[in-house]
Computed example of a mutant assay.
Amino acid sequence: MLRLLAMIAALGLALGLVPGRTALARSTAEPGQRLQYEHVAAAGLPEQRLTIWLPPGYDSGERRYPVLYMHDGHNLFDLQTSNFNKIWAADQAMLRAMATGRVAPHIIVGIWAPGNDRYRQYLPADIHQAAPPALRRRMDAMAGGPIISQAYLAWLAGPLKQWIDTNFRTLPDRDHTAIAGSSMGGLMSCYAFLRRPDIYGRAACVSSHWPAIDPREVGQTAPDGDAALARQWGDWFAAGLGRPDGRRLWLDHGTATLDAFYAPYQAEVDARIGAAGWRRGTDWESKVYPGAEHEENAWAARLPEIFEWLLDTRARP
């Protein structure tokens, strides 16, 4: 174990990753290992941080593993690092999915959100560029700086993935590489899935924040602002989705708090995905969770179901 951790730390330093504390499982009730890297340099981006979860047995064999990349990594595993004292419990969800026998153990790479830069790092550049002027001005006010999702995606799909595949025993091909996130992270996951189909074979876009700004303000940007923005998202999917080709996409939302605004947008996106020839339940899924709010406990409650559908080994090409 110590030899493995020392090797990973040394490789991280060689590649410009500065490891912070290394957290190991504290008991048999918390299997797996968590490795944390701080002060991660990424071209064109604020400083990044990583928490990597290795499944049980990783350090005792030669097996190679699929990889799941997840945004908002500080909210995935540890209440002490979370924003709202709530977490996705992604490691526990993965263990539950694995216990079904239908989901292979995955390495989970949690990429922390960079504080106030989260919005401009996660907002898809395509949507920002295509937005009408009034809506774009509101996006710019939210961003507080240039949109950098292009640079973030380039880093995710390039240097970060290369480092993970070099230093961990991964299955690096598209069909064993997934990405997931919620809210603005849901939008970013869709962006990665559409723009880099060569890298990401599976994506979960959870409670995606389709309004992109305060949903109560979208209607102020144009007479048909909400409908126009929904069509923009639909056009974006129609233009970038392509054929399924063995890929899988998960979409969902609740019906309370912020999620209460999402149904019209999701309906438009769903219609365009279906029209592109994707088979619902096989190539893609879209779920509504009555009463579910826009928060980590709600996402944690359905994450095992998401993993069981998205990562099902029987559905691989």
Score class of each variant (00 low, 15 high):
residue 4 L to C: 10
residue 7 M to I: 06
residue 9 A to Q: 14
residue 9 A to V: 10
residue 12 G to Y: 11
residue 13 L to D: 07
residue 13 L to G: 15
residue 13 L to T: 13
residue 14 A to H: 08
residue 18 V to N: 13
residue 21 R to Y: 11
residue 22 T to N: 08
residue 24 L to M: 12
residue 33 Q to K: 03
residue 35 L to C: 10
residue 37 Y to S: 09
residue 39 H to T: 06
residue 41 A to Y: 13
residue 44 G to W: 07
residue 45 L to F: 05
residue 47 E to Q: 15
residue 49 R to Y: 13
residue 49 R to C: 13
residue 53 W to S: 13
residue 55 P to N: 01
residue 61 G to T: 10
residue 63 R to F: 05
residue 64 R to P: 10
residue 65 Y to R: 00
residue 68 L to S: 07
residue 68 L to Y: 08
residue 71 H to T: 08
residue 72 D to A: 05
residue 79 L to S: 06
residue 85 N to L: 07
residue 90 A to R: 01
residue 90 A to C: 04
residue 100 T to M: 03
residue 100 T to I: 05
residue 102 R to D: 10
residue 106 H to L: 05
residue 107 I to D: 01
residue 109 V to F: 08
residue 111 I to G: 00
residue 111 I to H: 03
residue 122 Y to F: 14
residue 122 Y to C: 08
residue 130 A to P: 01
residue 132 P to L: 08
residue 135 L to M: 09
residue 136 R to G: 05
residue 140 D to F: 07
residue 141 A to C: 08
residue 151 A to E: 14
residue 152 Y to A: 05
residue 157 A to C: 11
residue 159 P to C: 05
residue 161 K to M: 02
residue 167 N to F: 02
residue 169 R to E: 11
residue 174 R to Q: 12
residue 175 D to M: 05
residue 182 S to A: 12
residue 182 S to Y: 01
residue 182 S to I: 01
residue 183 S to H: 04
residue 185 G to C: 04
residue 186 G to A: 06
residue 189 S to D: 01
residue 191 Y to A: 06
residue 192 A to D: 04
residue 194 L to D: 04
residue 197 P to F: 04
residue 197 P to C: 05
residue 198 D to F: 00
residue 212 A to Q: 04
residue 216 R to G: 15
residue 222 A to L: 10
residue 227 A to G: 03
residue 227 A to L: 12
residue 227 A to N: 02
residue 230 A to F: 00
residue 232 Q to R: 12
residue 234 G to K: 08
residue 238 A to Y: 06
residue 240 G to A: 09
residue 244 P to A: 13
residue 247 R to K: 06
residue 248 R to E: 01
residue 252 D to T: 07
residue 257 T to N: 11
residue 262 Y to A: 10
residue 264 P to L: 02
residue 275 A to T: 02
residue 276 A to S: 14
residue 276 A to Y: 04
residue 277 G to N: 08
residue 278 W to K: 10
residue 286 S to K: 07
residue 287 K to Q: 12
residue 291 G to S: 00
residue 294 H to L: 06
residue 294 H to N: 03
residue 304 P to G: 01
residue 307 F to M: 11
residue 311 L to K: 11
residue 311 L to H: 09
residue 313 T to D: 14
residue 316 R to G: 10
